[in-house]
Simulated scan of single mutants.
Amino acid sequence: MEPGLIWILAGLLALGAELVLPGVYLVWAGLAAIGTGLAIVVSGPASDWGFGWHVALFLVLLATGVALSLRHRRNGPTRRVNAPEAGLAGRRATILSTPDGALRVRLGDSEWPARLPRGVLGAVPGTAVRVEAVDGLVLVVRPIEGEAQPGAPS
């Protein structure tokens, strides 16, 4: 069997293995092997490069593919799916009463530890707040202006 076809077959096997074992590791090796095989086939049987040149071409194509992938990943958008802060900023929550006095809020069907920004005085349970930011797993909340505070004179 011709060396170019062996490289192409090895690349197709690597791509097939990537479908079974996903992780984006075998994609670059498979594409580099296919590229090496195509280069050997296109160059024709008259030019016998030798196995050392085949491996060198494969490694160059592999390094190029990985470098382009890393460059694209760095320049692409960074989305944190299923991260605590994903979509929480700007949402409305309610301050809960806790026996230990720690600030907690109810947001949707969950309770979150919370804190107020600097310079904002403590809020009483039942106060409506808006999430301004997320600091680790702690929500930074601020009372919503214009809404009646519980226990405040109307």
Rank of each mutant, 00 (worst) to 15 (best):
R74W: 13
W112I: 05
P77Q: 14
W7G: 03
R91N: 04
V105L: 07
L38M: 14
G35T: 08
A10I: 14
N75W: 13
A29V: 14
L107Q: 01
G151Y: 03
R79H: 12
A63K: 02
E132W: 07
V41N: 10
L26S: 11
D48I: 11
L26Q: 02
P22N: 13
N82A: 11
E145D: 15
V138I: 13
L61R: 08
F58I: 06
G16Y: 06
L68I: 14
W53M: 13
G101T: 05
V60N: 06
A83L: 06
L59C: 12
D48F: 12
L59K: 01
G136L: 05
P45H: 10
G119H: 11
V60A: 14
G151N: 01
R71P: 00
E85Y: 10
W28V: 07
A133D: 15
L13N: 01
A86W: 10
H72T: 12
G23F: 03
L5E: 08
H54M: 07
G108K: 05
A93D: 03
L26G: 04
L121N: 12
G23L: 02
V134Q: 03
G50S: 09
N82D: 14
R73T: 12
S47D: 11
H72Q: 14
G151A: 08
G90Q: 03
V105E: 07
L9A: 15
A56M: 11
G108R: 06
V27K: 00
W49T: 10
L31P: 00
A128H: 11
D109N: 13
S110F: 09
V24L: 15
T36E: 11
R104S: 01
A63C: 08
G146N: 08
V60W: 04
R71H: 14
T98S: 02
G30T: 03
V41Y: 09
G52T: 14
F58H: 03
G35Q: 03
A63E: 07
D48W: 12
V66W: 13
G108Y: 09
S69P: 01
T127A: 13
A114M: 09
G87T: 01
G30A: 04
P3F: 10
L38K: 08
L116R: 07
G76C: 04
G35P: 09
V120K: 00
G23K: 02
L116D: 08
L107D: 07
V131S: 09
P77Y: 09
G35F: 05
G23W: 01
W112E: 05
W28P: 08
P99N: 11
A114F: 08
W112A: 06
V42N: 01
D109A: 10
A33L: 05
G4C: 10
L139N: 02
G136E: 04
L13K: 02
W7Q: 00
W112P: 09
G108H: 08
L103I: 03
P45N: 11
G11A: 02
A102P: 00
L116S: 07
G30L: 06
L61K: 05
R79G: 10
S97K: 12
